[in-house]
Design a protein around this nucleic acid. Structure first.
Lengths: 161, 161
DNA sequence: CATGAAACTGGCGTGAT
DNA sequence: ATCACGCCAGTTTCATG
């Protein structure tokens, strides 16, 4: 620690905000298209390409940019049915459920949440009846509540406070 | 009707699956790192760079690849608190809720689901008490049930059947 | 700023229909 | 003969020191 007692929450050196207006514009542009070249980004924010590269690298190292992801349409790869499944673990079964979720390829995400149910999973299957086998696995360790996804009015996007 | 009656469901020419082994490998590689260059992809699948560019373009146009997304850490941009909110609309309020979700910047995704609750939203706020204002908006049109995200044992990934 | 690599384009060969 | 696909070689653009 240099001069101040506590490092800034995001790990940036003192006095330099990770989210000055330029970086905000960079994140906004990259949210719309993560594959924009540094040269193109540079044009939009009015800076040189190396400068932009440097900023993006810092955003990556600081963890502001956690990564880049490929968005595949599950229906196009034979998984047209999606469901959200809440799981309430039996006594002592909590870690097993997280482990099972990790090993189950049909599970695309799993969140530990507060409330009566401890886990919220997103599951993708080829047809409705294929959900049974997945649920059976989780039912070994607790109770499940399932809801099929009928549509997605707001597809995943980056939040803005 | 031997071969040329109806175009294949995905819009690909007859007899050629959009998911032949090569395309599967491309999707797998791009899932791990969507920013791989066409040249690098070409090395991995043993083809030329223009050929893989062509295949990726087709996967994009066919909608198999829906897009590319930037993964930003919400905590790093001042939104460390995430919650899943289920919303049960009052009579006739269903479309208003989808509209409100779309307009609300704190909402990063919204799914229409089966079951007692009609919508499942993911909400990001700077602090727990900031959830109140968001919920108040939705409570104009229905009832809400909220669960805070405590951890994410399986971060979003691409499912594999 | 210079160099090496990678992205786009058009043209040609091949195999299947 | 047609069409879809992949390779090759041209130029332009971009990334890295």
């Amino acid at each position: 620690m240099t001069s101040s007692s506590v490092p800034s929450r995001s790990g940036f050196p003192d006095g330099r905000s990770p989210l000055d207006p330029v970086n905000r514009r960079l994140l906004e542009a990259l949210s719309a298209d993560p594959r924009l070249s540094a040269a193109e980004l540079a044009r939009r924010v009015g800076m040189s390409a190396p400068a932009v590269r440097e900023r993006v690298s810092r955003l990556e190292e600081a963890g502001v940019i956690r990564g880049y992801r490929l968005d595949i349409d599950p229906a196009a790869i034979g998984l047209p049915v999606a469901a959200w499944v809440r799981v309430r673990p039996g006594p002592g079964q909590l870690p097993r459920i997280a482990e099972l979720a990790r090993r189950t390829p049909e599970v695309s995400e799993c969140h530990r949440i507060s409330g009566d149910d401890c886990f919220l999973l997103k599951v993708h299957v080829p047809a409705i009846d294929a959900l049974e086998a997945v649920l059976d696995q989780f039912l070994l360790y607790g109770q499940t509540t399932s809801s099929f996804v009928v549509s997605t009015p707001v597809p995943p996007r980056n939040p803005a406070g």
